[in-house]
């Protein structure tokens, strides 16, 4: 039972990170119908930025908490700026082009950013400081869940709640949903589409950066390639849950994370990807639109 609980919590932790990144994929897809393959790289850039800021602040002698807060803040802002710029440079000029063109542009952007970090930093794994402190009160539970896992779970839950409130109740949230449902009609009620798209990229990139920092701090090392792997997994989660659906991305992430965790725990870690992608194939066979992605009936 304890072993099961440990696997479940591990799965939830992993899944909530997938969900955090998957939200970026699904929101962008919902609004402009593009799979933003450079999204994983934003996650990686978030982690690298946090590493650089944390290193500098450590040298300057800042204390633990201020390092965590400042490094995260700068990393989030920096990644958001990256997401914003990528859209302006690589996708906006292709908005009226055939769907394949921005897709290729996205893949190109992904390769470019990976190699840029490879050249600017290094190809080796870099140690990442443990930004999340070990809490004493977690000591008795250490065999089931670690401090950093708890922080990951709580942070992602809080971030997702904020996002839900933003999308459901704010003016920009409503504009985002309206734009996703009917772009030209949204323009006809006065929505500035460019702004909505930019905001979507900024939010998605911020979430990815938060995910990048949490994972890097949990695992303890990063390199230029982490974004690719995390990106593919999160993309899988988004498709699993139903791409374009926000609750779908969260659910898809959790389901994928738990599947991997249980496969690792009960079978072998060699098979975690096999189980994850078998699950994806099965769901796509029986529910092609994903778990929550259903095409709602519309009267005309």
């Amino acid at each position: 039972m304890e072993y099961f609980l440990e696997l479940l919590l591990g799965g939830l932790t992993r899944g909530s990170i997938y969900a955090l990144i998957a939200l970026g994929y699904t929101m962008v897809y919902g609004i402009i119908g593009l799979i933003n393959f450079a999204h994983g790289e934003i996650y990686m850039i978030g982690a690298f930025t946090a590493l650089i800021i944390a290193s500098v602040l450590t040298i300057l002698g800042f204390n633990h908490l201020s390092i965590l807060v400042l490094a995260s803040l700068v990393a989030v802002i920096y990644s958001a700026a990256y997401g914003f710029t990528v859209e302006k440079v690589a996708y906006k000029p292709l908005r009226s082009a055939p769907r394949l063109s921005p897709l290729i542009s996205a893949i190109g952007m992904s390769i470019f950013l990976q190699n840029y970090v490879l050249l600017a930093q290094t190809s080796d794994f870099m140690p990442f400081p443990n930004l999340i402190p070990d809490f004493d009160f977690m000591e008795p539970y250490a065999h089931v869940i670690g401090s950093s896992e708890l922080v990951i779970l709580l942070t992602t839950a809080a971030v997702m709640m904020l996002l839900t409130v933003l999308i459901k109740f704010t003016k920009i949230g409503k504009a985002m949903r309206a734009t996703a449902q009917d772009k030209s009609m949204a323009m006809l009620v006065g929505v500035n589409i460019d702004r909505v798209i930019s905001v979507t990229f900024i939010i998605g990139s911020s979430l990815a950066a938060i995910g990048g920092i949490l994972v890097a701090s949990h695992i303890g090392q990063i390199n230029f390639y982490i974004g690719f792997l995390a990106g593919i997994k999160a993309f899988t989660a988004a498709v699993l849950g139903g791409i374009g659906s926000i609750p779908g991305a969260v659910l898809g992430g959790i389901v994928l994370g738990c599947t991997e965790s249980f496969a690792t725990g009960y079978v072998s870690s060699d098979y975690e990807d096999v189980f994850a992608f078998t699950l994806l194939v099965l769901i796509l066979i029986f529910r092609p639109a994903g778990i929550l992605g259903r095409s709602t009936t519309e009267k005309v």
């Binding site: 409503k174 949903r177 309206a178 449902q181 009609m185 009620v189 006065g190 709602t296 519309e298």
Partner: peptide
């Protein structure tokens, strides 16, 4: 907007 409520649709009308 099919997945917005009637009220939200009206809110969108007053967007500006």
């Amino acid at each position: 907007f099919p997945q917005l409520t009637v009220l939200e649709n009206l809110d969108m009308g007053a967007y500006l």
